[in-house]
């Protein structure tokens, strides 16, 4: 890997992609040798948007991307735990093929969002949580079913005199309990187990996983980038030989969402413009619109 970057989207994926491009360009310029971008892959919730922006060769969902990324590093992995900011996934692998997966559906309790909101409440940085939790000798027991329950549990424990380390340690194991209860239902977890996603940078969560499952848990040094690595591999396989231009970072991209009144469906259509020119639209469901779109986008 010659250049990497990990940033938050902060609700603005277009700006985030631009920032990524700038910083990647910088680190590529610093290299001794000439580097060339052969293919671009995007993944995640904004994969389509980012894919259109960059003219990506591969636009893949994050479950496949994570699976492919991890298998490139750990070909005999059987189980992947992935906890990101907003969602969590459990991927089961057999002979190098994804055979089953689960993704949390209803709430964000077993994810990074839960940890960061609780860290805020305790007045500590989310990055410090792991090391702090490892210092705890008597972790507090915190209900893991739901963020609201966990929070009121935590507040009560704090009032009754638990130390901060113990609370944080309790939160870290609450995430694991919630994850295993929600996603692990009816699934058989086989070693080797790989733990990745942003939350895997928290050593206390990794340790809680080891304790709960009784299995060793591998955390790669690039565990937070596995999805990106997977997308890159998929892009390499699908490369169409397009020339990539870093100037995309300087272009203005804008979106316009409106409700199509063409028929009773009232689809929410999103139009995506580059420098005022319509690049693509999505969100429509009817064939009428597809024809119009073909005429507009050309």
């Amino acid at each position: 890997m010659i250049a990497e970057e990990y940033i938050w989207t902060e609700g603005n994926p277009i700006e985030a992609v631009k920032n990524l491009l700038r910083s990647l360009k910088e680190s590529l310029d610093k290299l001794q040798e000439e580097a060339e971008v052969c293919a671009v892959g995007t993944t995640g919730s904004a994969r389509k948007l980012a894919g259109v922006m960059l003219g990506a060769d591969a636009v893949k969902n994050e479950i496949t991307a994570h699976g492919v990324g991890t298998l490139s590093r750990y070909p005999d992995a059987r189980t992947i735990f992935e906890i990101g900011g907003q969602d969590a996934k459990l991927i089961l692998i057999n002979d190098g093929v994804i055979v089953d997966y689960a993704m949390n559906t209803l709430c964000a309790a077993g994810t990074g969002a839960f940890l960061s909101s609780q860290a805020k409440r305790l007045g500590i940085a989310v990055e410090e949580m792991g090391d702090m939790a490892l210092r705890s000798l008597a972790p507090a027991k915190i209900a893991a079913r739901c963020t609201v329950f966990a929070e009121s549990d935590m507040v009560h424990k704090a009032q009754s005199g638990y130390r901060k380390e113990d609370l944080v340690a309790g939160l870290c194991s609450a995430v694991v309990t919630n994850y295993l209860n929600n996603l692990g239902k009816g699934k058989v977890i086989q070693p080797p187990v790989v733990f990745q996603g942003g939350v895997s940078k928290n050593p206390a969560v990794a340790r809680a996983f080891e304790k709960e499952t009784g299995l060793p848990v591998i955390v790669d040094e690039n565990s937070h980038l596995m999805g990106a690595i997977g997308a890159a591999i998929l892009a390499q396989r699908a490369a169409a030989g397009r020339v990539f231009d870093f100037r995309a970072a300087e272009r203005t991209f804008s979106t316009r969402a409106y409700e199509c009144g063409g028929c009773a469906n009232q689809c929410e259509v999103v139009c995506f413009y580059q420098d005022g020119v319509l690049l693509d639209t999505w969100g429509n469901r009817c064939p009428n619109y597809d024809r119009q779109k073909a005429a507009l986008v050309g």
Binding site: N61, E62, I63, T64, D95, V97, D100
Partner: peptide, 19 residues
């Protein structure tokens, strides 16, 4: 959210089928 899960499901079925 639904499309992500569906896409992943389809990818998985294809990979399984290939093996």
């Amino acid at each position: 959210g639904v499309l992500t899960r569906l896409e992943a499901f389809v990818d998985m079925l294809e990979m399984r089928r290939k093996t």
